[in-house]
Structures are given as structure tokens and as C-alpha cells.
Design a protein around this nucleic acid. Sequence first.
DNA 1: CGCTACGTTGACAGAGGTCAAATACTGTGG
DNA 2: CCACAGTATTTGACCTCTGTCAACGTAGCG
Lengths: 243, 243
Amino acid sequence: MATQLNNPIPLPSNKGNSCAACRVRHLAVCSMLDGGELNRLSALLTPIELAQGEPLFDEGEPATHVFNLTAGMLKLCRLLPDGRRQITGFLFPGDFLGLADRDDYICSAQAVTDVALCRFQRVKLENFFKEIPDMEHCLLGMARHELAESLDHMLLLGRKSAKERIASFIMMLSDRAVKRGLGANPVAVPMSRNDIADFLGLTTETVSRTISNLRRNGIIGTETGRKISITDMETLSALADCA
Amino acid sequence: MATQLNNPIPLPSNKGNSCAACRVRHLAVCSMLDGGELNRLSALLTPIELAQGEPLFDEGEPATHVFNLTAGMLKLCRLLPDGRRQITGFLFPGDFLGLADRDDYICSAQAVTDVALCRFQRVKLENFFKEIPDMEHCLLGMARHELAESLDHMLLLGRKSAKERIASFIMMLSDRAVKRGLGANPVAVPMSRNDIADFLGLTTETVSRTISNLRRNGIIGTETGRKISITDMETLSALADCA
DNA sequence: CGCTACGTTGACAGAGGTCAAATACTGTGG
DNA sequence: CCACAGTATTTGACCTCTGTCAACGTAGCG
């Protein structure tokens, strides 16, 4: 665990700190900035990398920095005093984090895979944003989006069966892959069964059993290397939507 | 259900549309406005009332209005196609709603008790807000607060036992009562067992049984008229926090 | 006074959790 | 390239919590 970064696949990170050349720019808030603004933003950022499993920050720490994920996947989680854990979300390239926090981080962030991020000092970024017309409005839009997503997840946690949760989860991964311009079908599932369980409010065993069940019913196929192929999209989608 | 408004207790609403005289102003966004601004805000609002059970708006409708709850309690909910329901939150006097929505309402709102609200046309309110320095910032703060609350609720739905959920729920009601300047102890529980169940991801029967269990263990007392007294705050609080 | 909706309680069932063991991967060093 | 260790995943047996179905109280309200 937490081995040093030695990914054979070149990470699409921001070598040379150039926001203009950033490969995930179209996915991030940065998409609303013009050329000159991008250059000024580049000057503000420190590129950082984290190996799989490493924490980025913990719940309750002062929220001094804001990040933009450029490669890999992060998980956000909350802990109960006795160790029970709820993963509140997974972040994909282009996602910002820390912006929705006020004084302290409201949850911990940890690397699911090796990741690359742009780190910004919160105050500097906020000062920069103040000069951009409608930036606060854009941030509000992001917060609204997160809020809508969290309502979906509450519905899942409160009312869906294990099978429906797993189906929703796979559909979510597939949808996000499409948004990032990747193929919808053999969908990458980089997180462990345990992480999936903590995201869906289940146990590792139930996640495993439910995935096996979907496989036996010909709805999905499981491949080696944490990938899942969708073999019956219609049924999977119906399960996810509880239709 | 949905009987006409005939509450014997006078609702502390905003007769005469005067924001300056509003009894919940200190609880709402309005607290950041000065005298002149308050008068202009008064001109924008239409006071409305809803009887218990009546819907305010439904998920998916265009979000044309924004509301400030001045008296009573509202519930926000999401539905699954087959009728399963998740209540995502209860609103108290001073709470805004509709502000976190973009084009359409992201969930339905319905009156738990008879309620009084200030209704604003969304565009008008947004134009007004544009002139108030830091108003967008204040809205962002509200969205952030909602986001933090929804994370708490995810943790509850994903990881807490029925007993812990009920304890958390009662503590939440008590805390909110205190914030509104009411007594912490015999806490009003205006919503039905069914609403509590749909909020906590349980069934009516489990809610009822769990409350009975807490009563038998001397942790709470149930009084007639939808009130609960906390008789062992320490234990209840420990249960709620899973400490 | 008798509806009707709401709440409580009981008996039972089943989904999902728990504990334990087997199996499959992954990365490492020989 | 293979053997090994360590981890992740799957599977099984069993159990518990919560859901389901049904009956019974209770509180408002006409």
C-alpha cells in the first residue's frame, strides 16, 4: 500500500503548470476562464501527486487549500468514533475539492489510485476568483450540483436494496466515464470492494455477493484488473432507477 | 388530511409584509440586510399559507419561486418510481428553500404542519440580491451548510443502527429548538411516524418500536400531542454520536 | 358517539451482516 | 519466468436486525 508513484501509464497531469495545456480543463471550473486568466491561474498552482492510499487531508483540519484533481481518483469520507465509515463521494479528473468547505474540511480525502492534483492556497484562489465576474455564481452552481448529487445518494442509502445500489453504482461509473470521453462499456472500477461497501452503506461481503449474483444472471461480466463489463444495459439501468 | 388553515395558535407570520417586523428575520438570510434593504425586500414578497399536508411544489417543476419559511414545518422529499420515498430534510422557521435549486426543483416540498411562508419570484429576488454586496457569498455559505448537513445524513443512512438514527433525530430536533430560542427538553415532534421513517430510512413500525424501546429504557418519555421528553440526555447523546 | 387516520405491538420472514475459510490477484525477489 | 507472501475477493454457514403482514389501541374530529 502507498507505494511511490511509478505508474507506467503517463499521468495526464499538468507538467509545467500550464493551465492552458491542462487536459482536464474542459471538465473543471477553469473552463470559464480566458487565456490571460488561465496564465494567472497557472502562477497560483502547485502540482502535487499522491500515491494510492495516501491521505490528502483529514476531516476537521483547517481548510487552507483547495484542489483540482487532474488524474486518478480520490474518495471523500466521514468516520464515526467507533470506526464505521461512510464514503460520501468519489472524485474524478476535473473535479474540485475543498471549495465547498468553510473553515475546516468537512470530510477526509484519500487517494484511491495514484493521483495528480493542482493545489491552490485557498485565500489566493479566492482573491483571484473575486476578480472574475460571475465566479461566485459559478461556485454556487457547483455547490448546487453537489447538493443534488447528495440527495440522490441519500435516496440510495435510505431506500434502495443491495442489488439496486450496486446497479446504480455501476451505472454512475459508466456515465462518468462517458462524460470524460471514455468508453461506457468495460467500465473501470478502481476502488476496492471495501470502498464500494462504505460508499453504498453495505459490507464487503454483500457487495461481492451482489456482484456475483448480477454476473450469474448475465447482467454484468467481471474481468480481471478491476473492470466490469455491462452485458445487459437495459436490465442494469432499470435496476438502478428502480423502474 | 389537507384541512383548511384553522390553527387556534396565531401563526407568527409576517402580517403587513414587513420584513423589519419579521419574527424569524434573525434566523434567515435577511439578517444581513439593513433597514432600507429590508423595506425593498418587503415589497418583493407575497405572504402565503399552506395547510398541513399541502404540497408547495413538486420535484421537476420549473423553480420559478423561492421561499422563506416563517412559521410551521416543511418536509423535502424525493420519490422512487415505485413510490418509495426519502425525506431529505425538514425545514424550520427562518429556513430558505428553492435557493439551492437551479432550473427545476430538485425535490418536492410539502407542509408537515400548517405553515406560513414569504414567496419571492426567483428572478426578482436574484436581481435584488445582485445589488447586495456579498449576497452571493452568503448564498454560497448556505449551500455549504446544507452540503455539510447532507453528509451527516448520509453517514446516518449508511452506517447507523435504528436506535442510533432515532437518537440522532431527537437530538437534532432538540438542537434546532434551542437555536430557535425554545426549550431543549420537551421537544416537539410535529411529523408523523411515517415521515420520521422516510427521513431515517426505516419503516413506521421500526420507528415506533425503537421509540418504545428508548422509553422502556428510561432514556426518553413520550407525551401526548407529538412531544418527546428527554430523560437521559447523556445516554441519548452518546447513542446519537455513536460514541 | 363513531369514524378515520395514526400509532403500537406481535409473529414471522428475509435481506443483509458476521465470522470463518477458501480462492484469486498483485507485486516482489530469486 | 516462477515461487512466494500478502492482500483482496469470493463463498459458505449462520444469525440478527429490520421489514412485512396483521391485529389492536388511541386520538382527533365531524
